[in-house]
């Protein structure tokens, strides 16, 4: 292994303070690494701390103790503009509930991350068009989210994550709002993109069936890792 890992978590803890007295230890010291091209599933039941971990990995939140590093740089050392740039350039988010903006067309939704990056509207449209084509929605460019099925909406969201050519796809229960068949299609799409682009894929799920598809599974229980089991 040369150079630092794409993403590393070192003894990460996250404590939430609820009121003056009550403290919730959502994560109690979690360590693992994700390298370029890895396919990792983070599995855990509700309350295991996986949402907290997702926020930390996505650079949306900072750990109470421990370190989250991207390319060897500690997220805690970054200011707001740097965090924003990290999320924009290195990470592609896929959410359970898609999080598309209802008033924008599929094409504009996909182009949204590029707005925070500069470039001409023309070049953004071109890139969005290519991403939508890659997820098989070239014929739905001008549809709004309300006019698309759940599976199609998640494809638009994946295209949006892909359009910035990120190093890491971070998918949070990507099949949680979809039926099994559609969910399988979405997983296949994510896996295919991971393989084609050499992107690391981290899937957060509570379903063992989804987790089994990954090369590696990290299981969370009560804020701690259950020793890793190779797939």
């Amino acid at each position: 292994m040369t150079g630092p890992s794409l993403l590393s978590a070192e003894a990460v803890e996250r404590v939430y303070r609820l009121g003056r007295e009550v403290e919730v230890h959502a994560l109690r010291g979690v360590s693992f690494t994700v390298d370029r091209g890895d396919y990792v599933a983070i599995m855990g039941s509700s309350g295991s701390g996986k949402s907290t971990l997702l926020n930390l990995l996505g650079a949306l939140d900072r750990p109470t103790a421990g370190h989250v590093r991207y390319d060897g740089r500690d997220v805690a050392d970054m200011g707001d503009p740097e965090l924003a740039e990290l999320r924009n350039r290195r990470i592609g988010f896929v959410f359970q509930s898609f999080h598309l903006l209802p008033r924008l067309t599929a094409l504009d939704n996909v182009a949204l991350p590029l707005v925070y990056r500069g470039g001409t509207p023309r070049s953004r449209r071109q890139a969005a068009l290519e991403a939508l084509t890659a997820v098989g929605l070239a014929d739905r460019l001008d549809h709004r989210p309300g006019e698309l099925s759940g599976g199609q909406q998640q494809r638009v969201a994946i295209a949006r994550a892909l359009v910035t050519d990120p190093a890491l796809l971070l998918a949070d229960e990507p099949t949680g709002n979809l039926d099994t068949a559609t969910g399988d299609d979405i997983m296949e799409l994510l896996e295919q993109l991971q393989a084609d682009h050499g992107t690391a894929l981290v899937v957060i799920t509570h379903e063992a069936q989804i987790a089994r598809r990954a090369d590696r599974t990290i299981e969370l229980r009560d804020g701690l890792l259950v020793p890793e089991v190779p797939a």
Binding site: P81, R87, N88, L112
Partner: peptide
């Protein structure tokens, strides 16, 4: 709120 959160996740700075 959701839109704002999403925009931030996609790379919007506080200033944006």
């Amino acid at each position: 709120t959701r839109e704002i959160g999403l925009r931030k996740a996609l790379g919007a700075r506080t200033r944006d």
